[in-house]
Design a protein around this nucleic acid. Structure first.
Lengths: 319, 319
DNA sequence: ATCTCTGCTGAAATCGATTACAATTGCAGC
DNA sequence: GCTGCAATTGTAATCGATTTCAGCAGAGAT
């Protein structure tokens, strides 16, 4: 009798003892599958991120795991690989596995799948990126503001032809950081030059190729803003191979700190996003929603800070 | 009637059509939980790695996911965080979730849990690290040989006081790389100095602290061998902060390439392990075992290569 | 015409836990 | 002594898919 487990009342000590002993004897191991089937939910949290190889997301994973484990949940992690179809497939899979809820970094800011989830009362939290038009819990950082701040910093340091290598605009991060870039230029009266703006999937290789494109122009940029850490790595490689010096030939400022960055000379100016905290908050929001599925959706926006270092040092006066 | 799905024979076209239509109408979504309960196994592969923030393992994850997805499996990823208890807990959890099989990077080379798994015919593959005394599928790299090769290289380049920062000997990688180090010294008649050998959990912070310890000695090493990529990062930070030059003050050679290493000057000499291939092979072994649980266990040992770069450049002649 | 066999279909058992419900006992209150 | 309630425990329904079993219709053989 399973009343013994889960400490239900109305069981005599004698019986409780007998049951416990038998359990030990048989090396009994309850099937979570059967339990999930009966209870119609499990103690599993689904976590779908868009790139397992991106240190930003591994920090998020770490945080979600810590919170989940503390509360007795396990984490089912999947890698959507910036692919909307993979993402949808994994969401369906999670659903079929009866997860208690899921945290997703949506590849595209419009996806009908989320509307369905919300309507069906499936606890779900969007992290890092927003989903348009669906009232759901969301944890993001202040991308527009942070991008604007770091680009403004470049402008204030004397840079005028500021290139931008951004993630695809389909993801809200890409779009918002682009907007921050545009806003900063407008605010300082610096003309927006479309030929200096590139976007692609946030992968190191793309950062490399797009930066090469910028540098190959007849009037190359005097500074580059990268909208993602992998793009930053690619940009560094391109600048490096082009034999250019930072910041004298071209300044560089990007998103996200990485743990080896102290090695890079000159030190890089970056927007520091609170990755771990984002994961924590997302996990907490999810657990709250699991408890109370009817709570009003919350949108948490965390502050990022610009860490100014040498890669954006004041430009020498130019002719 | 579920004979329609899974294309069983003995169903008329009329019925098949009717069923399919109803399925569409109701937006029917089969419960994998119920299926798992009935069939006593699922289409999920468990993957337990010891550090989600280690790029080596994220490559492995990537590979396992690619193979799994191709074969219609989903991956349930967990992070044991180098903690034997967490690892065992997750294994139990996977078992209770009726995974089809699991791939684990064992934190300790002796763990009775694995014997039980193998005896109970649960498909399981050890990756990156061995488990002693249990006949199971294993995918590792040739750690002893690779460590020996890279340390020999240091010796041949004129270094004599070679320090070692290794992972804990409980994990087979730590022990084997240590053995490779010892072998190389012995082979070249270089005395083994115990005070130059340190080990700890493979984390960046430990690499930092242990390297500081080595450097603080009255007779500090003229070269350091690091047995893991995170330890390498830590060692770099320590050397960096100590204001020492590589390789003139102290040479450095370690394990594992990382994608940003082209940025580090001088370029680092490293052992390149085929991380992605290890993941692939492990996934393939697992899938084979799922199909045939009685196959004899295989041990795959992959070759690593030493990538010689500037951080181990020939030492200037010393007094 | 009867029997068999094949092709197909519906009904029912099954997986292992949870949980609702019924049955039993003991004990207090009237 | 009888009723009523609480404490305890056994029984059975349930979750949703798979799978076995039995039954039925029609074709072909005898």
């Amino acid at each position: 009798m399973s009343r013994v487990l889960s400490g239900k009342p109305y069981v005599s000590d004698a019986l409780r003892q007998r049951v416990l002993e038998t359990i030990r004897e048989l090396d009994y191991r309850p099937s979570r599958v059967a339990r999930s089937l009966r209870v119609q939910r499990s103690r599993i949290i689904g976590l779908i991120i868009s790139d397992i190889q991106n240190p930003f997301f591994t920090s998020v994973v770490r945080a979600v795991e810590d919170v989940a484990q503390q509360r007795g949940y396990a984490v089912f992690l999947c890698n959507s690989d910036e692919d909307v179809d993979k993402e949808s497939t994994y969401i369906e899979l999670m659903l079929a596995e009866q997860v208690a809820g899921m945290i997703v970094s949506p590849t595209a800011s419009s996806n009908e799948v989320y509307r369905r989830l919300v309507e069906q009362r499936v606890p779900v939290v969007a992290i890092d990126r927003r989903v348009d038009g669906v009232p759901m819990d969301t944890v993001v950082s202040d991308n527009v503001h942070a991008a604007c701040a770091v680009v403004s910093h470049l402008i204030e340091n004397g840079y005028r032809r500021i290139g931008a290598i951004l993630g695809v605009p389909g993801a809200s991060t890409g779009a918002e950081r682009h907007q921050g870039y545009v806003t900063a230029l407008a605010h300082h009266g610096v003309p927006l030059l479309p030929e200096l703006v590139r976007s692609g999937l946030p992968r190191s290789q793309n950062g490399y190729e797009l930066t090469l494109e910028l540098l190959a122009q007849s009037q190359p940029p005097d500074a580059i803003f990268t909208g993602n850490n992998l793009l930053t790595i690619g940009a560094l490689r391109a600048i490096h191979e082009a034999g250019l010096g930072i910041p004298d030939d071209v300044a560089l400022a990007g998103f996200d700190e990485m743990d080896w960055m102290f090695l890079v000379k000159p030190a890089l100016t970056v927007v520091m996003q609170p990755a771990y905290e984002m994961g924590q908050r997302a996990a907490e929001l999810l657990l709250e929603r699991i408890v109370d599925p009817d709570r009003a959706p919350q949108a948490v926006v965390l502050q990022s800070t610009v860490k100014v270092r040498e890669s954006s040092r004041r430009a020498a006066m130019r002719a």
